[in-house]
Design a protein around this nucleic acid. Structure first.
Lengths: 271, 271
DNA sequence: TTTGCGCGTAAAGAACCTGTTACCGGAGCG
DNA sequence: CGCTCCGGTAACAGGTTCTTTACGCGCAAA
């Protein structure tokens, strides 16, 4: 039973979905005193952190699976704005706090507009900086983890977030971690989800153009769903848009007591 | 009810069906100059906003359906911290920015820990304050989309943004993604849209000179609308200008509970 | 009424989107 | 160390959608 075998992978890769106890932070800065004070404070709080003396690629940041990034934009020189924009675009779920020396209103506005979550001016107290970072992370997290609680039931399928697995008639579908996360996300949202949306919320960062991973996983899910529950179709394609989850009998009926079968116009529904 | 509520944008609520994409902001402050400058800037950005001279209950804030709250915590006196905590607990999805005079690190830390998203120190530029508010809202909004996009109803047609589809009496119009986007855009805007405007907002870039794509899509839309709802006409051509969406019976009546009774000259009705 | 230009309509090829399969690198496990 | 399984990438086929082009009509101005 590989059901619970891959949990470490899951929690590591899906940082935004799983509430990891330790927060992960990176600091791009070169001020030894600042770094020292901040590091001490972060250690005592139990955060995982690392300092970088220069910009690293967005891909490298992705692989670090960070919750937050503190950036002194002055160490990047004139290319700092582009770098900020690139990082914000690639990691929309990352909390970014600019912490740098004196600046103009125009600079601060520019940084915030590009996607930074907050701007702190040095010198500042480590305590306050950490509070600002926490506030930024808090916002991100509130969105990404609604509640994983009770089981969801759609047609013949039962989704158990507490077990990271889905079942049909008591039999496990043997979903992998990724497969389960995508199924869970689709089932939770009662609407069409674009591929980019699915990717961003499951993988934790922006989907690269032309990436087909979501399609391939949907195919795997459909295969397992079909095998376990041949009478229903669950994942529906919306051409040019994305995917939507809804349990529907092959003959067209709707088995679930669907919460949203509100026909738009009851008074016009004749025949 | 709160003290004086200067609702500067009452006219914006004209269309009850529309899910307004405008941001809603409240300011609790007593500095006339600050309020004036901020109001001007917000008006030009098209935000709905109101100012309050004192604290209002959390329930009142709920009923305002705000996106953000800007608060000068000094106007609340010693009970301000409790108030902040109460509001943060009651409205976890509300972006809260404290904007007040000089403060200690301890105060700022306390405010942020209680749930505020950012702390600005007066005097500050309205532009920067707005950027900070936007940064806070940006994250909150991401996952609140499912609720925000309610169905739009015009005549016999129901537009469901969550399903990327339009219906007539419960039957899908089978719109393609592009067709739906154009219909949705037209239905959202209660006015004549020029082709260039439609193209730019749907395609995402400027329309090439002589491009007829919008016309072709309007034709397809009209065909499907006519087939699904023969009694009404929905997309109206304004010769030399563009298109306008409005459900109208073929015989000239107006099926929607539209509040427009008086209008001797529809052509001149602002748009 | 005439004229010029904008608009509706139709069709065909280009471009795009999706399902599917095969393959490869890497992580975890025995 | 080798094995298995998982995640991710590339490629192809088939179907759908979008864009372009052409032609004729209708609207507005002279």
């Amino acid at each position: 039973m590989p059901a619970e075998a891959s949990d470490s992978t899951a929690s590591a890769q899906a940082a935004p979905q799983r509430a990891s106890s330790r927060l992960r932070l990176a600091v791009i800065d070169r001020d030894p005193g600042f770094l020292q004070v901040l590091a001490n404070r972060l250690d005592s709080l139990g955060w995982e952190h690392r300092s970088l003396s220069t910009a690293v690629t967005a891909e490298a940041l992705v692989s670090m699976r960070l919750n937050a990034l503190v950036l002194d934009i002055s160490v990047l020189g004139p290319g700092g704005w582009e770098y900020l924009e690139r990082v914000c675009g690639r990691l929309p779920g990352l909390a970014i706090v600019i912490c740098t020396g004196p600046s103009s209103v125009g600079q601060r506005v520019r940084g915030l507009r590009l996607g930074a979550d907050a701007w702190m001016t040095k010198p500042c107290h480590a305590e306050e900086l950490i509070c600002v970072v926490e506030a930024a992370i808090r916002r991100h997290r509130r969105n990404e983890m609604p509640e994983l609680e009770g089981a969801l039931i759609f047609g013949e399928i039962t989704i158990r977030p507490d077990l990271y697995q889905a079942y049909a008639g008591g039999v496990s579908l043997e979903l992998t971690a990724r497969e389960f996360e995508i199924l869970h996300l689709l089932a939770q949202s009662d609407r069409v989800l674009r591929r980019e949306e699915i990717y961003e919320r499951v993988w934790g960062y922006a989907m690269a153009h032309g990436d087909r991973s979501v399609d391939v996983f949907v195919r795997k899910l459909r295969q397992k769903l079909r095998q376990a529950s041949p009478g229903c179709s669950y994942i529906h394609t919306h051409f040019g848009v994305g995917y939507r989850f809804a349990a529907e009998f092959e003959d067209g009926g709707v088995p679930t007591p669907a919460p949203q079968d509100l026909e738009p116009d009851p008074e016009l529904t004749f025949g």
